[in-house]
Amino acid sequence: MDDLLNALVLLANFVLIPAATYGSQLALGALGVTLVYAILRFSNFAHGETMAFGTMVTILVTWWLQSHGIGLGPLPTALLALPAGIAATVVLALLSDRWVYRYHRSCRARPVIFLIASLGLMFVYNGIVRIVIGPADQRFADGERFIVSVSDFRAFTGLSEGLALRTTQGLSLVVAVVIVAALFWFLERTRTGKSMRAYSDNEDLALLSGIRPDRVVLIAWAIAATLATVAGVLYGLDKGFSPITYFHLLLPTFAAAIVGGLGSPLGAIAGGFVVAFSEVLLTYAYKRFLTYLLPESLAPDGLLQLLSTNYKFAVSFVILVLVLLLRPTGIFKGKML
């Protein structure tokens, strides 16, 4: 019986919690991508760099707060700096729209032109982030490290396996739930939110109904920038900030959005968790887990890792391709291009 419990605790500690954390971070990122897609109808390749930019501003403000001795006690100071990061990123997104996308919208350019424009912005953001904060890794999590630590858990349960829930992990989950709930309330219940869904559904009819496209686009950018910053900060708190990682997050983020169905907010969340859990489940070494469950004579001698963590990108990609081949609109029916 203890063996079974130990095995489950092990799995929870190394698979369930990390995957759920990563999944909620991906879901937030994918929501931003899917929202831009739903309203502006292109895949925003600058989203990863937008995340990096928002995180960078948050880090700088965090440092400033820390240097003045302002903190949140057990919670990371970054939480206090987050609104500033969001504000800066929203301004960046709106300026980008004003100076870049708006022109192409006014001449009704093809979606791929927007995509190429987003590549240009990707360069610009990328450069700005590296000039301001540099390409190196930054850790900015402070406050209490654990909500539940391994030793607490062991003392409490008497099991030999420990379970740890880090503050950043708990925070990721809670913040993601709050943000997603707020976003859905906005989209489903408010007039503006509904007008955005209407615009995404049928642009021409939305115009006929008196919905102002400029306003819808503005709000879409603001929300996407907010989601990008929150996702970036949560990821950075959890795993550390380095600009290059945020570029690499683009692939799983897009995979999540497409797997769920591009343009579908619910799909983005589902997709985030599908990608995160597949990645973690396939790259976890099951040796210890099975050692608990199997009789000693059958104990495995290899690591029993299906896939080296080096290939976690491959997981996103394979899921992506499978979904595109089997169900091109994604789990929740998204938009066809």
Partner: peptide, 23 residues
């Protein structure tokens, strides 16, 4: 009322009417 594409397909009937009253 356009000939085609004259509704918001993913929105409920009531939301369609609400959007009609947007102004």
């Amino acid at each position: 009322v356009p000939q085609t594409h004259n509704i918001f397909p993913s929105m409920t009937v009531e939301e369609n009417l609400e959007m009609g009253a947007f102004i």
